[in-house]
């Protein structure tokens, strides 16, 4: 039986797939690096490094375009099916998530510039207290989800989905504290709002990591586990019926 389990009969197909995988992993490495740089620059109040981080975002954007082109080319030329199809569709989505993670890092860098722009006095340390632990959680999630993707490690991918709940809770806690500071002392509002944008960016990065983990599960298992918000569909259906009834009775 002329079966070679891993390689395609058309070798160029394997080359294209490997190329795409490499591009995605490269994007992942860059996104991780960008997040680290943005947080380090914020921590060290290093505006030059901050500006560099902002400038470097276009490298990820450029890679996204290339990866998208490669996906389209594979679909057009190879008509992938089965696991190949799942791989292409998942990677195409993951590429978007990675680009957004890059945007998140850029957003943090932008806010750093706003905070340390030299016009106003620097913020007190307590305003920034929650940023570091949240950044740590987000960075770990990003690292883990890229690892899970590279190794096709489903249990690890599933654990990331749980970490995201943790990060969301950290975000809610941090937000409450910032609101308290703002109410206590309205002069902190300017800085606090910038910090809110930073922690929101971190929270979004966590969401994108969760998406990447979900796509990883799909690409391995063929099962879509994307979590919607906890909506009871029976309640929604009942609601829809209710609305329809109202409209038919009172046109």
């Amino acid at each position: 039986m002329p079966i070679s389990p891993e390689a395609h009969t058309v070798k160029q197909f394997d080359v294209q797939l490997a190329n795409l995988r490499n591009m995605v992993m490269e994007m992942g490495g860059l996104a991780e690096d960008q997040l680290k740089r943005a947080i380090a620059a914020l921590d060290e109040e290093d505006l030059a490094a901050t500006r560099e981080t902002i400038a470097r975002d276009r490298i990820i954007n450029g890679l996204q375009l290339k990866a998208d082109e490669e996906c389209i080319s594979i679909i057009a030329l190879r008509q992938p099916l089965g696991s190949d199809l799942r791989l292409i569709m998942s990677l195409a989505s993951i590429v978007t998530d990675l680009e957004r993670i890059g945007d998140g890092a850029k957003k943090i860098a932008r806010m750093t510039l706003h905070i340390y722009d030299g016009v106003s006095s620097p913020p007190s340390a307590k305003l920034l207290r929650d940023v570091k632990p949240m950044a740590q959680t987000a960075a770990t999630m990003l690292h883990d989800c890229l690892d899970a993707l590279a190794r096709l490690d489903v249990p690890k991918a599933l654990s990331i989905i749980h970490s995201d709940t943790e990060l969301d809770q950290e975000f809610q806690g941090a937000l409450r504290r910032l609101i308290t500071y703002m109410m206590e002392d309205p002069r902190t509002i300017g800085h606090a709002i910038n910090v809110v944008f930073i922690i929101k960016a971190l929270e979004r990065i966590g969401d994108h990591c969760k998406n990447i983990a979900e796509h990883t599960v799909y690409l391995v298992e063929g099962k879509n586990i994307q979590q919607r918000r906890n909506i009871d569909m029976n309640v929604v259906d009942a609601l829809v019926k209710d609305v329809e009834m109202t409209w038919t009775n009172n046109p």
Partner: peptide, 24 residues
């Protein structure tokens, strides 16, 4: 881009593993 990335990270890029175990 590739060269830039490697020098930036200062460490080998995570290798893109081949998809092997397909549990579908």
């Amino acid at each position: 881009t590739a060269i830039e990335t490697e020098s930036v990270l200062g460490q080998p890029l995570r290798s893109a593993a081949e998809p092997r175990q397909k549990s579908t």
